[in-house]
Each structure stands twice: as structure tokens, then as C-alpha cells.
Amino acid sequence: MSATGMSPFLGGSASRELPGRAPDDAQVPSPERDRGIVASVLDAAGNARGSGYNFAYLDEGTKRMIRRAILKAIAVPGYQVPFASREMPMPYGWGTGGVQVTAAILGQSDVLKVIDQGADDTTNAVSIRRFFAKTSGVATTTRTTEATVIQTRHRIPETPLTEGQILVYQVPIPEPLRFLEPRETETRQLHALAEYGAMHVKLYEDISRHGHIATTYAYPVEVAGRYVMDPSPTPKFDNPKMDDCPALQLFGAGRERRIYAVPPYTRVRSLDFEDHPFRVQEFTQPCALCGARGHYLDEVVTDDSGGRMFICSDTDICETRVAEAAR
């Protein structure tokens, strides 16, 4: 995350068209207000009025191309479909893949949630949410239950996803075999022939070095019994959420020009050894804010004298629980 909080695609005029904007409006978004935007900023063609952009930034031809890739990806779960990644008004590494997938699937009635490391209020999340608010005018939200499309970097929400929801992952390196095999021609062969023995070499190396599988994020999974897939740098804590998930999961890698997908209710199995089965991280203490157990916790340094606390990385569920407790 950029310490300055500046995102390159947020110019000074970025929020000019957004009524009711306030410097903090992105930090403390309200679904009601966001929905209100929809009516006021869209023109008859569905384009964001006055923005000068096509709906959701990308032109329709590009969206069609991306949708074709998405359809193919859904048809072949876990398979990396190449697509003609476009230059986006943000640098690679800021979620260009996820943004293009979101842009291609977003409709006017969608409600968009964007999270980064589980939080709605981090720079990357705020920037992308405002980008779509501006270019598409769709409603945005921080509530997992209200969102129809959730773009994410590094987390899956704690609130179970439901049918009809789409989770869009930002992916830096889509190729799970890349660390072993630098040649793209060879990794494609390996996928084509389902030669995944090498995938276990990484896990073997972990155990031989640390006594257990120390890979904690981007933990490789086998999708629908066929393709091995990199779930993007989500913590392995989230891997079980991918399995048999009612929501559609889409993965976009902008720099690497790949899209892949896990259709709803698909078997997603984390690779492991018989004598070293897959396990998720366990946290000894509950969230310091909402008291939840069984959530993924972030360590937060609270002062200069080594004070620290563990709190939910999913800000939505944490705030919801805190609010409910206060009621």
C-alpha cells in the first residue's frame, strides 16, 4: 500500500461529478447514499454522465473480449485463459486484472464492494471503488451481504458468500508452477498433461525446511479434480471458503494477461501430503475489537513501545459485530 494514500488514477478532478462527496466519503461509505448516486450520474445510455467514459471505463468491444475469456474460464475451471489485457489508468500491481474483470461483468443494477486485505477503507480499495463509482455510477457498499460483485485483494470475506454473488480476485502471478518452471511453454504442457508432481516439491521443501508446510498464502489448490490453480495471495486460511462456494469466483491477472475461474459449487482442494494434511492458521486469541473467534486476524501495532493487538482483517464483519454488540 502506498503510504501517501495517493493512487495514480485519482486525479484532482476524480470526484468532481460525485455529488455529496466528502473527503471521508470513501472511508465511511454508506450503501444508501451510494445507491442514491446511481440515478443522478447515469445518462440514458447508462454511461456515467459527464464523465466522458464508457460505462465502467472499458469500451464494449473490450468487455466482450473479456467476457468471452471469462466464459471459457468458467467452462474449464481453474484453467488460465489468456486475454488481451488493456492498459488501465493505474499501474500493474494495483489490480488491473481484477478491475478489467469487474468492468466487464458490472451491470447498472450491481452493488460493488471492494476490499484490500479484507478492509474496505484501505487506499487500493477506496481507489477502485471510487473508480467504478465514477465511471459506472453503480452503487457501492461495504457490506458483504449487500454486494453483488466483490473485488478483492488478498482475502475472502468471513461472511459466507451466496448464490448470485461474484468474487473477483486481483492476481499478481497466476501461474502456480512458475517458481519451479520459468518457461511458459513448459508450464502449459504441465497443465495440459496434468503433471503436477512438481507442485508438491514446493510443499516438500517447506516440510524439510520448517517441519511443516509453511506456505501460508497463495497456497496451491486443485480445482474440480483437474487443474492446479494459484488462489492469488489470499491466506491459506481462506482456501476452505473456495471449496463448494455458492458464489462465482473470477480471477484476473492484468500484467500476466490471464483470467481463470471457479464456478459455483466447485470442488477446490488444497494440495497436501497424507502425513502432513492441509491445515489453516489458528489464532489463539479472539479479535480485540469484536471478540470474534475463527476469523482471520491482523496484527496491529498500537504504539511505539511494542503494544499490539489482533483484530479482524475483514472490517465489515468486525464493524457489524461491534455495532450489534453496542445495540
Binding site: G197, H200, Y204, E205, E274, D275
Partner: peptide, 27 residues
């Protein structure tokens, strides 16, 4: 060889490629 992978991993790879999924036996 895979130069960045341990000797044990290098030897074990072909076993894993044949479907061996027991770390203790591979090692």
C-alpha cells in the same frame, strides 16, 4: 536438476510425479 530445490526434493520429485503423497516415504 532443479538447482534451487534441495537434494531430497530433487530425488523426490519423480516419486511425487508418480502420485506419491506421503512425505515420510518420499523422504
Amino acid at each position: 536438476l532443479r538447482m534451487a530445490v534441495s537434494a531430497g526434493g530433487n530425488v523426490g520429485e519423480r516419486l511425487m510425479g508418480m502420485g506419491e503423497r506421503h512425505y515420510g516415504r518420499i523422504r
